[in-house]
Simulated scan of single mutants.
Amino acid sequence: MASRVIGRLPVVYYPQTGKLEVENAGEFVEKQIYQRLDELAHGQPMHITLTVEPVNKARSTAQNSLMWALLTIMADHYNGGRTGGVTPEDCYLEMLEKYGAKVDYLEVPADALDILRGCYRLVHLVEILDNNRCTVKCTQGSSTFTTQEIKNMIDGIFDRLAEMGVSDPLVTAYWQEWSEP
C-alpha cells in the first residue's frame, strides 16, 4: 500500500529543553493537519506514524547557473577551444561522482534508454555492446543536492579549473562574486 502523507509540519527542536516548537509559519499547517486527522479518524482512535527528517535547503538557481557556466569553460579548456570532444555534461558527470552524487552503471537493452531517462535525471551512454545492449551511467544529478552540497561541488569545480591552469577573466570574475560573503 502506498504511503499517504497527511501533512508536513515545520518544527524546531531545542536540545536544551528537549522540546519541539511549531514554527510561526507552521501554525496554519498544524490546524489543517489536525482537521484532516479528525476527518480520517471518524471519532475513533487512529494509529499514525510520525516521520522526522531534517530540513535541507535545496540548491539555488543561481548556484545551478554558475555551475553550468563553469562546466562549459572546463569543457572548452579540455577541448583546447575546438568543438566536439568533452562536453559540459561529461565534466558534470565527473564532478558529480567526485562530490557525492550516487551513480549507477547499468547494462540494459538499447531500447530501454527512454525508460531510464524517465527514472533518472541524467543517462549517459558509456558503451555499445553486442545483441542491442549498452552500458549506461545514470544519476539523479545535482538537483537533489542541498545548498551546502552544491557549494562544495562548485568550490571543487573552481579548484579543478585552477589545477587545469585555466586563466579566463570570466572565471576570475565568477570566483570574486562567488567568494563574496
Rank of each mutant, 00 (worst) to 15 (best):
78 Y>N: 06
78 Y>K: 11
78 Y>E: 11
78 Y>L: 01
78 Y>D: 06
79 N>D: 00
79 N>E: 00
80 G>D: 03
80 G>F: 07
80 G>A: 06
81 G>H: 14
81 G>E: 02
81 G>Q: 10
82 R>H: 15
82 R>P: 00
82 R>L: 12
82 R>I: 05
82 R>N: 12
82 R>T: 15
83 T>V: 11
83 T>Q: 13
83 T>G: 12
83 T>N: 06
83 T>D: 08
83 T>H: 13
85 G>K: 08
85 G>V: 04
85 G>E: 04
85 G>Y: 05
86 V>F: 07
86 V>S: 03
86 V>I: 15
86 V>H: 06
87 T>D: 03
87 T>G: 02
87 T>F: 00
87 T>E: 09
87 T>A: 06
87 T>P: 01
88 P>E: 03
88 P>S: 12
88 P>G: 07
89 E>D: 08
89 E>P: 00
89 E>K: 07
89 E>S: 13
90 D>Y: 10
90 D>L: 10
90 D>P: 05
90 D>W: 11
91 C>K: 03
91 C>V: 11
91 C>F: 00
92 Y>T: 00
92 Y>R: 04
92 Y>N: 01
92 Y>G: 00
92 Y>V: 00
92 Y>A: 03
93 L>F: 08
93 L>K: 05
93 L>R: 09
93 L>H: 14
95 M>N: 02
95 M>K: 04
95 M>Y: 01
96 L>C: 15
96 L>I: 09
96 L>M: 07
96 L>R: 01
96 L>H: 03
97 E>I: 14
97 E>T: 14
97 E>D: 11
97 E>K: 13
98 K>W: 05
98 K>L: 14
98 K>H: 11
98 K>V: 06
99 Y>H: 10
99 Y>R: 08
99 Y>P: 01
100 G>Q: 12
101 A>C: 15
101 A>S: 09
101 A>Q: 03
102 K>L: 08
102 K>R: 14
102 K>S: 10
102 K>G: 02
103 V>S: 05
103 V>N: 02
103 V>W: 01
103 V>E: 02
103 V>Q: 05
103 V>A: 05
103 V>G: 03
104 D>V: 11
104 D>R: 06
105 Y>P: 01
106 L>G: 02
106 L>T: 02
106 L>V: 01
106 L>E: 03
107 E>I: 12
107 E>H: 14
107 E>V: 10
107 E>K: 13
107 E>L: 04
107 E>D: 10
108 V>M: 09
108 V>Y: 04
108 V>A: 04
108 V>S: 04
108 V>I: 10
108 V>C: 04
109 P>A: 15
109 P>G: 09
109 P>C: 03
109 P>E: 15
109 P>Q: 10
109 P>L: 06
110 A>E: 13
110 A>H: 11
110 A>G: 07
111 D>W: 09
111 D>K: 15
111 D>Y: 13
112 A>M: 12
112 A>F: 07
112 A>W: 05
113 L>Y: 02
113 L>I: 13
113 L>A: 06
114 D>C: 04
114 D>T: 14
114 D>K: 13
114 D>N: 15
114 D>E: 08
115 I>Q: 07
